[in-house]
C-alpha cells in the first residue's frame, strides 16, 4: 500500500511534539513560500528549510520518497509540458510546435522541484501528526467560524474516522477481490462495459461491509457516551509552548526571507 496520506509515522521528535495548529498553519505558510520563491536562491532556501524540518522530524527519507510515487506521473507530465512548450531565446532544438530551450529546461526543473517540495512538505505534516491531532487542530482553527454555522467538531470527527477506516477498507477490498477471483471472476480483461459490470461483485460487498461497520461503530461510540460536542474535553488540550512559538517564527522568517529575496533582489 502506498497511501502516505493519513499514514502516521510514530516516533518522538521535535516536530511530532509541536502543536498541530502550528503544524497546519506552518504547512500553509511553507506552501506559500514555495510559491513565492522565484529564483534558484529562493528555492534553495525553501529546500534547506524542508531538509531541516525532515531531519528534526526523524521520519525516514525513504518513507517521504515513497509518498512521491503516486505523483510521479504528474511530475513527468509537467516536466514534459514545460520542456517542449516553453518558448525562450536560446532554442536548442525545434520541430514544429515543439521546442526545447534553456529557459524551458530551467522552468521544467523548477516546476518539478516545486511539486516535490510541496508534496514532501505536506507529507511531513501527515507523517508527524496523528489523524486525531490533525483533526483536532482543524477543529480549533475552524472554531471561530462555528458562529456562522460551520460544524467544526463534526467535520473533524468525520475526517478522523474516515482516515481511520481507509486502511481497513483497503484490506477488505483486497480480500473481496481475491474471494471473487477464487470464484472465477475476471477483473482485467474484457470490454469497458464488461469491466464495469465485473465491479459489481466487488462494490456490493464493500458497501454492505462499510455500512455494517458504520452501524457497529456508531453503536460502540454511543456505548462510550459519545454525544457530539456536548460537554466534551480532550486528553491533549492544545496549548502553545515555547517550541511552538519558535516554529511559527521560523516559518514566518522563511516566508519573509523568500519574499525579500524575490522583491528586493529578484532572486
Amino acid at each position: 500500500m502506498n497511501i502516505t496520506i493519513g499514514q502516521y509515522y510514530p516516533t518522538n521528535s521535535l516536530i511530532h511534539n509541536l502543536d498541530s495548529r502550528i503544524k497546519i498553519m506552518g504547512t500553509f505558510l511553507y506552501i506559500a513560500a514555495v510559491f513565492i520563491a522565484k529564483g534558484v536562491v529562493g528555492y534553495a532556501v525553501c529546500a534547506a528549510f524542508l531538509a531541516l524540518v525532515i531531519r528534526l522530524s526523524k521520519v525516514p527519507v525513504k518513507m517521504l520518497l515513497g509518498g512521491l510515487k503516486p505523483i510521479i506521473l504528474i511530475i513527468l507530465f509537467t516536466v514534459m509540458l514545460n520542456i517542449f512548450f516553453t518558448g525562450g531565446k536560446d532554442i536548442l532544438w525545434q520541430h514544429g510546435i515543439f521546442k526545447i530551450s534553456v529557459q524551458g529546461i530551467l522552468l521544467a526543473v523548477k516546476m518539478a522541484v516545486r511539486l516535490i517540495m510541496l508534496v514532501m512538505g505536506s507529507s511531513v505534516l501527515t507523517l508527524s501528526t496523528t489523524p486525531i491531532q490533525l483533526t483536532v487542530g482543524m477543529e480549533y482553527l475552524l472554531k471561530p467560524y462555528k458562529k456562522i454555522g460551520v460544524p467544526a467538531h463534526e467535520i473533524a470527527m468525520m475526517t478522523s474516522i474516515a482516515l481511520r477506516f481507509i486502511p481497513t477498507l483497503v484490506e477488505e477490498l483486497d480480500k473481496i477481490r481475491k474471494a471473487q477471483m477464487a470464484r472465477g471472476a475476471d477483473f482485467d480483461t474484457g470490454t469497458l462495459a464488461q469491466k464495469a459490470k465485473s465491479l459489481i461483485p466487488l462494490l456490493v460487498p464493500l458497501f454492505v461491509s462499510a455500512f455494517r461497520r458504520a452501524d457497529e461503530l456508531a453503536m460502540a461510540m454511543e456505548a462510550r457516551c459519545y454525544r457530539g460536542d456536548i460537554n466534551r474535553t480532550r486528553m491533549n488540550e492544545l496549548e502553545m509552548h515555547k517550541n511552538d512559538y519558535i516554529a511559527l517564527a521560523a516559518v514566518l522568517v522563511l516566508v519573509f526571507l523568500v519574499l525579500a529575496l524575490r522583491l528586493v533582489w529578484g532572486l
Binding site: R224, R234, M235
Partner: peptide, 16 residues
C-alpha cells in the same frame, strides 16, 4: 475510533 492507542482509550473519558 482512533489511530493511536492512548487516544483510543481516552475517547470515553473525553466524552464524559
Amino acid at each position: 475510533i482512533a489511530t493511536i492507542i492512548d487516544e483510543e482509550v481516552a475517547f470515553g473519558p473525553e466524552n464524559l
